[in-house]
Amino acid sequence: MSDLPASSEGHGKGWRDRLTPDEITRTVIDAVHTGAESRWEPAQRRAAALFGVTHEQKLIAVRKHFQKEVVGLGTATGAVAALPGAGTATALATGVADIGWVTVRNADLILTVAAIHGHTEAEVEERTAWILAVLVFGDDAAASFDQLARELGKKAASVATSATMKKMNKAMAKKVFKSYGTKKGALALGKALPFGVGAVFGATSSYRGLKALIRDADLFFRQIPRADATPTLATTVDLAKGDDEA
């Protein structure tokens, strides 16, 4: 729980154990499957409609598109969970719902970045693997994704079969809580801070996470090959800098 401000540690101890690893993992995996199964075509349409000519401009447009909604959710759930009289049960329920919804929207974002990079064909298992790889492995997603494919299927990820993808998804699912899950659990716990403080914590954490996720997804799709075309030259915009100029 090191992602939390020091002042939040004592406040959360009374109900922290109720946000269990199994509950977080189940919520995240269900949300990932929802994203992979139903968000691919909308992501392609979203990518096609983004403002911008260059790759960097499109990444900035992605960030702006998701920023208002995701950061707004972080603020709203922080405020609701910390309302006087709401109690820890409300904080817990709101935090779990937040984890699920933000994960679905993160899947939307990852698939949108995939579409920006020209990925047009992918089965559900492959889309699930993309989402899990970025969420679980972060900026090391491409290398870890390929290594896992070789370990489980004896071939590179670019030629992995559907059966191998299923094995990879099961393996990555087991890593959810120790990576992505604990981060989201920490954010949910942070939103149970006193009214106002929790809202701000939720918003700033969501914004930082959004920028990092875009960078990680962009790096991942720059490094994994497309089956349908020669990879385009694209450089990752540094979203941690120059926001005032965007």
Rank of each mutant, 00 (worst) to 15 (best):
Q57C: 00
H55P: 05
V28D: 02
K64T: 11
T25V: 01
A93H: 13
R39C: 06
A36C: 05
H65W: 07
A82G: 14
R39M: 06
G72A: 10
P84T: 06
A89G: 09
P21A: 09
N106L: 00
L50E: 07
D17C: 07
F66M: 09
R16P: 02
R45L: 12
D98W: 02
T27L: 05
G35T: 06
V70F: 01
A48W: 05
R18H: 05
R26S: 15
K64L: 11
G35V: 09
T77E: 02
F66C: 11
N106T: 01
A76V: 12
W15V: 09
S38A: 08
L73A: 12
T88R: 10
A48L: 11
V70H: 01
E56A: 13
T103A: 04
A97Y: 03
V32P: 09
I110P: 01
G95Q: 03
T77I: 07
T27E: 04
V96C: 06
A31F: 06
H33L: 13
D22S: 10
V96H: 03
Q57G: 02
L50K: 05
G78A: 07
G74Q: 03
F51C: 00
G35H: 03
T54L: 09
A36W: 06
K64R: 09
A47Q: 10
A79P: 00
A97P: 00
R39P: 00
A61V: 04
G74T: 09
L92S: 01
A31K: 04
V53K: 11
A43H: 10
A89M: 13
G52S: 04
A47E: 10
A76F: 11
K68H: 13
V70S: 03
L59E: 06
A81F: 03
D17F: 15
A107E: 04
D17M: 14
V96S: 06
Q67D: 06
A86K: 03
Q67G: 02
V104Q: 10
L50Q: 07
I60F: 00
L83T: 14
